[in-house]
């Protein structure tokens, strides 16, 4: 099947989504994703950051599609023509989506464990507007522990449903989910149950933001001061292929390895993640190749901080102190 994305034609098998086709062409035309995850079935469709314009449905039916579509959930048709970055309309619409994702977001990057590997930071920088027009109090939630290994900062959650799909598809008993509805919807366990299960730790890796974080991440280091290495060990439960984050000789945390699209290559088990924090536990393969397009590596961290300072001023002026709260 032939599909043209931003003027570049590519041949793809039937059943390929627009997003997958765009990724085959390359990162320049691949739409940003916040909820889609190639390793999780039925993921995607929620965040709407990956929307694109279909200017020709197919050769058989050349009409354009009336609305933008979520590229992650729309399969290509033969002869389809798609616009992503070449459509000013899409760029503007995406700016809107980013703004929606941020209006209730605390943007406390300076104290957030995710800073440096946060998809929302990247998204905000690359696709957002410079100023927020939201002047109301932001949603607040208390930070809670889900068991002794995972912390939930609900304020930072963008409801991508990835962690729910992990629990559903990788573990044998889902104990957390999305409760309430609308903008009161939140990730929750049933009566503060612990999420504990051989593969439950993977919810941390799939979370695009700092909503689910590893409580065992030792010494609380900014990610960019740590050195990630690809390493493996013999494991009965999983492939044992992991990414081990060092500071000097110390292992600070263990995560799954991620690919070019920031998606986990192989899910790892909790034992590898939590119980092997000695260098001797691991056979080191070499430094991890991380695509350093993240805002941090490009020194754009200042920019977001600036946005946050502005926001704080605005909120203070309006009499809300909400985002000053310590996590």
């Amino acid at each position: 099947m032939k599909v043209t994305i931003d003027g570049i034609e590519i041949d793809v098998p039937k059943g390929t989504t627009i997003l997958q086709a765009a990724r085959m062409i390359g990162p320049e035309v691949a739409p940003p994703t916040m909820c889609y995850y190639s390793k999780l079935k039925t993921s995607g469709g929620y965040c709407r950051t990956c929307i694109v314009k279909v200017t020709q449905g197919s050769t058989a039916n050349p009409n354009p599609m009336p609305k933008p579509v979520a590229s992650c959930r729309t399969e290509v048709m033969d002869g389809m023509v798609v616009q992503n970055i070449t459509s000013p309309e899409i760029i503007e619409a995406r700016k809107g989506v980013v703004e929606f994702l941020l209006i209730n977001h605390p943007l406390d990057c300076p104290v957030c464990d995710q800073a440096g590997e946060c998809k929302l930071q990247d998204l905000g920088y690359e696709h957002g507007a410079a100023k927020s027009r939201y002047e109301f109090k932001r949603r607040e939630y208390e930070v809670i522990d889900i068991g002794d290994k995972i912390k939930l900062h609900m304020t930072r959650c963008i409801l991508c449903y990835r962690c729910v799909k992990v629990a559903e598809q990788l573990t044998d008993g889902r104990v957390h989910g999305v409760v309430h509805r609308g903008d009161a919807a939140e990730i929750s366990t049933y009566i503060q149950q612990a999420i504990s299960n051989d593969f439950s730790g993977n919810v941390i890796d799939v979370c695009p933001v700092g909503a689910l974080t590893d409580k065992t991440f030792r010494f609380k280091q900014r990610v960019w001061f740590t050195k990630p290495m690809d390493a493996h060990r013999n494991c009965k439960k999983c492939s044992g292929k992991a990414r081990v984050w060092f500071k000097g000789d110390e292992v600070l945390r263990v995560t799954a390895r991620k690919d070019q699209w920031d998606e986990v290559e192989d899910f790892i088990c909790n034992e590898c993640r939590y119980d092997h924090k000695k260098t001797a536990d691991w056979t080191i393969e070499g430094p991890s190749h991380i695509s350093r397009h993240s805002v941090i590596s490009q020194n754009h961290y200042e920019h977001l901080n600036e946005l946050k300072v502005q926001l704080m001023k605005q909120q203070k002026a309006l009499g809300f102190m909400s985002i000053d709260k310590k996590p």
Binding site: G45, Y46, C47, R48, T49, G96, V97, F100, L101, I103, N104, Y134, F136, I158, L159, V178, H180, R181, G182, D183, A184, A185
Partner: peptide, 21 residues
């Protein structure tokens, strides 16, 4: 509409409440 949004997708979840405010 703010009250009835299911909350799955970001524009409706966040936008309806914003308009109400």
């Amino acid at each position: 509409y703010h009250h009835e949004s299911c909350g799955q997708c970001s524009p409706c979840r966040e936008g309806t409440g914003w308009m109400e405010k």
